[in-house]
Design a protein around this nucleic acid. Structure first.
Lengths: 331, 331
DNA sequence: CTGTTAGCGCATTCAA
DNA sequence: TTGAATGCGCTAACAG
């Protein structure tokens, strides 16, 4: 079937070692030889076998991008998909390929534990537990945690500065003169949820503003849930003049309800989202939101991971990616 | 570092063959033995090495999802990302993992040719050439082509029925009484572009409708390009009463222009898109569009691929996925 | 710059 | 049901 290094060796008279070198480290072979070898290889359609190479080098040049099952649709997920793109780009640049896996992919059939290790390292996204991380480490597979913060030795975490992002959004609303500000929180992982919620509360307090309990909502981050919630919110005698939604989808649900009820945005109601997903520019009027540099998060996480794979000692670190407030047309 | 099968063997007294079997084909080992082995394995944190296994089995249980560089942002691409999700799901079900690669990933450093074969088969998306497909086949790597149709022996192609999708959209507009229908075509690959454009022309003719040349536009499929184009379109003395946009982003660009100019949709202008991307429900009013079953396309492509990987003879075949017209609020 | 020798960790014959 | 032996295709010392 596939030609092997031996076939090439036989064909052109060099030893298999030289053939190997011609492909793995061309600079160690004279140009003349190289040319001959490549020609022979081409003739019989030879390509180095990555598996055999990985076997002996103990390195696959692959990394895994692992997403918890609950968060599946990795790729459909407007947050993770740009992050993933960032990972892809830097990996490509550094010569790595990337696998997508869900948590269940990393457990072998015997049940209990672990994974099939075809990767030199992994980026774990969002929810996990220490045990999972430990199991990777115990197999000498470096881990970088993304969009989550767990307190463990030698663990690099890359996440969003949710707290400050929220402060930016809420202060902006306050500066615009809003006092009756509602929050619709998405039901995210504790880390994310807490940071955004606390920041909202703290910022309101800091500015001497009261938080009306009826203005504090928590929903699944879907269009429908948000629409239902917003409908209730606007049905109260005392209405908020501004809504801070904890992500763009929620914000857009709120927009829909307001628009259909004939509100003018932002005159009658200001809305600010979080994420700066593609949706925010798609929508009309365009949504004010807190921008997360998702590509960069992916980039940083994979850079750190690759450094560790390539020998740098892992040191405990939390990298918080800065957010930017994007004031567009809804606030 | 990582424990090997030998360490387990030493620890529990069985031969490495038995250990191997306990993991690779548990049913060939007595339950008692299995229990002992798993316990020992767990103790020293042993996991089968996927690379070594792949080496001897000549099978990696991986497939590659390959996207042309021009179409990169695979994942950011609202068309490919759900397709990819479909692939992911069926692969997971069948025990395969999936790699994402761009065309440039599959060429080795020596320049000219080919790939590192860590995959049992590949799905190639969109634009490619026969040479690329040939080179995979010559390495015994099965190929399924997705969203493109190329006439080659034993090649399975999975694509969208663009022609009929367009017919659905245009006939719907005609039934609504529209006569002055504009088309804004996205500058897609010839296959896609041609099918949609021809269908538009054919359908108009079939209904005895004239096509005003000023109503025929072709743009890059971006919001900006579409907005600019639509602005021109609506500035003409004679305005179209309906626009068929060849994808949702273009349609949404048109919506934006119309909405900002104070048009009511669909009363003043009807708009129909193509793709049924997430955007179409995000937008207000919600966009009428031609739904492509992207998950299914991914599913079918990967199912076919896996069949071939697992021994079924590849037969030349073109699978066209049916579309559905989704009439929402813009038509 | 090139060749020789030795495995990498596992699944697979074949025997017992 | 279990074990012993041979090799997958390649790279990495170490020499020459």
């Amino acid at each position: 079937m596939g030609a092997t290094i031996l076939d090439v060796a036989k064909l052109c008279g060099y030893s298999k070692t030289t053939i190997s070198r011609a492909f793995a480290s061309p600079e160690k072979v004279s140009e003349k030889t190289r040319t001959i070898i490549y020609k022979a290889a081409k003739e019989i359609n030879y390509t180095p076998d990555a598996i055999a190479r990985a076997m002996v080098r103990k390195k696959t040049d692959n990394i895994g991008f692992i997403v918890a099952d609950q968060q599946y649709p990795v790729v459909l997920n407007p947050f993770y998909s740009p992050v993933f793109e960032g990972v892809l780009r830097t990996c490509k640049e550094k010569g790595y390929s990337v696998f997508i896996a869900s948590e269940s992919d990393i457990h072998i059939s015997t049940g209990q534990v672990y994974m099939k290790k075809q990767m030199d390292g992994v980026i774990i996204c969002g929810q996990t537990d220490k045990a999972t991380i430990e199991s990777f480490k115990s197999q000498n597979i470096p881990v970088v945690l993304l969009n989550n913060i767990i307190d463990m030795d030698d663990l690099v975490c890359v996440a969003v500065d949710n707290y400050n992002g929220t402060v930016q959004a809420v202060e902006h609303l306050i500066q615009r003169g809003h006092v009756d500000i509602a929050i619709i929180s998405g039901n995210f992982s504790p880390n994310v949820y807490n940071a955004r919620y606390r920041a909202f509360v703290d910022t309101m307090k800091k500015h001497g503003l009261e938080i009306d309990e009826r203005f504090v909502k928590r929903v699944e981050p879907s269009l429908e849930a948000s629409m239902e919630c917003t409908t209730q919110l606007l049905a109260q005698k005392r209405e908020p003049t501004a809504i801070f939604a904890t992500n763009d989808v929620i914000a857009i649900g709120a927009m829909k309800v307001a628009l259909r009820a004939g509100y003018k945005l932002p005159e009658d109601l200001a809305i600010v989202g979080f994420d700066d997903s593609d949706y925010s520019e798609i929508v009309e009027p365009e949504l004010s939101t807190v921008r997360i540099n998702k590509l960069e998060i992916g980039k940083v996480a994979s850079e750190r991971l690759i450094e560790i794979i390539e020998g740098k000692a892992a040191e405990k670190e939390v990298i918080l990616s800065e957010t930017t407030l994007l004031v567009r047309a809804t606030s």
